[in-house]
Design a protein around this nucleic acid. Structure first.
Lengths: 346, 346
DNA sequence: GTACGCTGTTGCGCAGCGCGCAACGCATGC
DNA sequence: GCATGCGTTGCGCGCTGCGCAACAGCGTAC
């Protein structure tokens, strides 16, 4: 549980320590003293003291002048804003996300993959009074979240195998930890076009998610709807799944994804499921090359409510939505940092 | 414009460089190469290469595998979530903020002071279609933003003097750069209980802001309404100012602020304006000691629309809103980093 | 009142580590 | 195919960051 200083990795030592120190700050312990940090990082407290002083000068932490303890600083929020800002998908999705939130009455999120986590990059809050913590920046495991499972399901086969070979951490009694079971679950997700996670990561919390594809057909993001389990009953979940997939497909279309023969059978779906390169995260800008033909989009499902979502008539073609820069998104599947548990509430 | 490596400040050199490197990434240039970074920081490119490799391992930056260039990583968003999470004020304010956004139809923000900037820590999006960039984490100058001016106006006199002694950067032709003029403007803000900024920081953008006080009467945050100038006409601004102040006062009340004889004259207001310790940012948790008596709250103003805001019946007393931890918020007024321009869109 | 335990900070001096250098591999463009 | 740009990496010097221990401040226990 404690972050040991890492056994000699090639990086710059003091920067590695700075990063590790920042990551120690969690939701449970937003405020940490020098001694406490030193203990957790197995470093001398003088080292931490100097490190914190430097980070404070940069605005990455703030020191409580009374207690002398440190907490994370708002400069992180400023940089995070710029980091999130890169995802033009957010601009495209915002309208649809809010429409979905309004239609369902539940909180909706947009998530991408970052390393071996899903990370929420935008959200539309529930209109329902039950506040459940904000989530932008929150990291969710790939194997037990509605945001993560679609990202994993449509990843390259080798990547799925790698992830399923890792220990599937059980966060609740309902977390699926058996790789074989998870494999079938992922297959179901590829067929159905959406995922459900009922208290698999957090007790009392249920969510559904559907994949968003770019113009090449690669799954680059997930749209999710989440709320308290008591409110997201199975039938409501089923009806929301339809809206969810409509929203996600509409986003995919905005990104230039042309659905390949939408009425293909399930067999065709399953056989074509593994295409593409994997990581969707680094940038969601469009790579003009290679028009994608991939798995079928969500096959039409009976939308219980029959409601259509908001206008969502945002950008029409990827080319004029996305800025000039050209960006690819395949990168080696390098495990990066363990999954961390926290609830960032914004 | 370029960030020189800083002339020997006591901190850890490589960490300082890491921080500086991260801050170089701006909205205008979200993606930077090693050579470019090296040039800007006056460092050898090998140094930057190693630095970036280390930061990437920590998830603070991502490297584009094709171009080799770097951009900010989502780990920053994760940490930022935790940083923002500390501000319990956000939870208290969220409902009121959304109500205000609904009532005005414009985007509303909640900002606190961080160093010599105001930083947005929460927002409620406009229902109007004109999307104007998201703002959480965005830094705004104290002297030319509706978020910043109230924070400055109610700061300790010495702090105001210090800030006004600094060069007041002109971002637009309408930015007030004369300290004497600004001094009177701040006085007006203390009297009126709200600030207005019409294209003083960004062209085409107008905003109004009102101060939020904690139980001691210290101004710890600003509620702002902002939108395109063409939509925020003077009379609309005037009517919104009333709602704005209602919302801010209501938040102050939620924080335990008891308005001291609200019908005091202007003279009394002005003479009592300088109290308190300054920095409102480190934490907005309640210090149970010392019930504050300070400047008068917004004096009643004719609310043109007469509309009341949403229910806003959140927490009732500070004690049960705020978590257990006790926190003070006075810290030396140390200038920290120049103001940076960017538009974080989330 | 005093002594203790705790906190975070700081001067000192050694040596470990991070830097600059230059060479390398690679992609792009003329 | 050379030229030019990029980002990365092995080497070795010497600066820098570390551990040590002493210090100052605070709250508490006796």
């Amino acid at each position: 549980m404690d972050a040991v200083p890492a056994p000699r990795s090639g990086g710059i030592q003091s920067v590695e320590r700075a990063v590790a120190a920042l990551k120690v700050f969690g939701e449970d312990e937003p405020e940490l003293g020098v001694t406490e940090l030193a203990r957790r990082l197995n470093l001398h407290k003088s080292t931490i003291s100097r490190l914190m002083a430097t980070l404070e000068a940069g605005g990455f932490v703030q020191q409580d002048p009374r207690t002398g303890r440190y907490r994370l600083g708002l400069q992180l929020a400023t940089l995070a804003g710029r980091a999130l800002n890169q995802y033009d998908l957010r601009d495209v999705a915002r309208g649809a996300l809010h429409s979905l939130a309004r239609a369902t009455g539940e909180t909706c999120n947009l998530a991408v993959r970052d390393g071996d986590d899903a990370v929420n990059i935008d959200q539309a809050l529930s209109t329902n009074p039950v506040k459940h913590l904000g989530w932008i920046g929150r990291r969710l495991p790939l194997h037990c979240s509605a945001a993560g499972k679609p990202l994993l399901a449509f990843a390259p086969r080798t990547d799925i195998e790698r992830v399923l070979a890792l220990p599937l951490v059980a966060y609740t009694p309902r977390t699926v930890t058996d790789p074989a079971t998870m494999w079938h679950e992922l297959e179901r997700i590829r067929v159905d076009g959406f995922a459900v996670a009922i208290e698999e990561f957090e007790p009392e919390l249920t969510a559904a998610g559907a994949p968003v594809r770019d113009h090449r057909g690669e799954v680059i993001a997930t749209v999710t709807v989440s709320g308290p389990t008591f409110r997201l009953t199975p039938d409501r979940l089923a009806s929301m799944a339809g809206m969810l997939r409509e929203t996600a497909d509409q986003l995919s279309a905005s990104l230039g994804y042309r659905a390949p023969s939408p009425r293909l059978g399930i067999a065709a779906v399953s056989s074509r499921a593994f295409v593409g390169s994997g990581y969707a995260s680094p940038s969601l800008r469009i790579d003009p090359a290679s028009a994608g033909v991939d798995t079928a989009p969500s096959r039409p499902v009976a939308t219980a409510t029959g409601r259509r979502l908001g206008p969502g008539k945002r950008g029409t073609l990827a080319a004029d939505i996305m800025p000039t820069r050209v960006q690819a998104d395949d990168r080696p599947a390098r495990p990066r940092g363990a999954h961390e548990e926290e609830r960032s509430t914004w």
